[in-house]
Amino acid sequence: MANQTTQLYQQHNIEEYFIEKEPFYLEVADEIDIFEAAYHQRVPVLLKGPTGSGKTRFVEYMSWRLNQARKRDGRADQMSPLVTVACHEDLTASDLVGRYLLEPEGTRWIDGPLTRAVKHGGICYLDEVVEARKDTTVLIHPLSDHRRLLHIEKIGEVLESHPNFLLVISYNPGYQSALKDLKHSTRQRFIAIEFDFPPRDLEGPIIQHESGVDITKAQQLALLGEKVRNLIGQGLQEGVSTRLLIYAGKLIEHGIAPRRACEVAIVWGLTDDHETQASVMEIVTSIFP
């Protein structure tokens, strides 16, 4: 009986999750080569750029690409999982390393995501790393230099990284206050790849591919993106992300009128200030009939 329920979701252990389908990624410059080189030399990578500019997608793509190469070379047993941790203000070192859990007969240690990635040779991607508490730097530093070690104080162990392990962190230099800047001692352990929103003629095809709208509409959305991004610092903190443009495209593809789709996907999402909303809406009505 129970076996007949169809399972609509897939469950993986963190270290057993591999990306199977090729993520769509359009190279803007030479970032793919750089990343591959860095990976082969096990040089940690820092991705900088505003939200929705494709940092996460890039890491996914690279993870997939590296694993494809292993498959081709017949090293399928050496596949490297992708472990993504979205950092937040209350993320502490124990959240990354692991902690004791209470059980009826005592306590049990469980590994955190970083420990698992180190053990299984995954790419550990710490998204928005500056958001995390400062104590995480204690972990990041020995992992990101020649030592490649993870200290687990609580159980008194030191872990040597699996050869395939690589630390990738990202941060958004745009909206952090001076308090939340990345420390220089941390910065200088990574090579940095800068991300920005793709230029209009590249963003159009991306929107077209991701949302399925026709190329005219996709280009109009890209134009809208370009124009709205001109407002950064003059009413907007952040420009509209490619992600939001794609969402708008998806709504349009599903039959929502373009102006309305832009309103809900872009204008309202972007800001709460009424005047800025009205201005962005005027750009929308100028572009879309």
């Binding site: 124009k227 001109n230 407002l231 003059q234 005047e275 800025t276 201005s279 750009i283 100028s286």
Partner: peptide, 10 residues
């Protein structure tokens, strides 16, 4: 204010 932002954007 509205038109200024509009002009800036364009």
């Amino acid at each position: 204010g509205l038109l200024r932002m509009y002009a800036n954007a364009l």
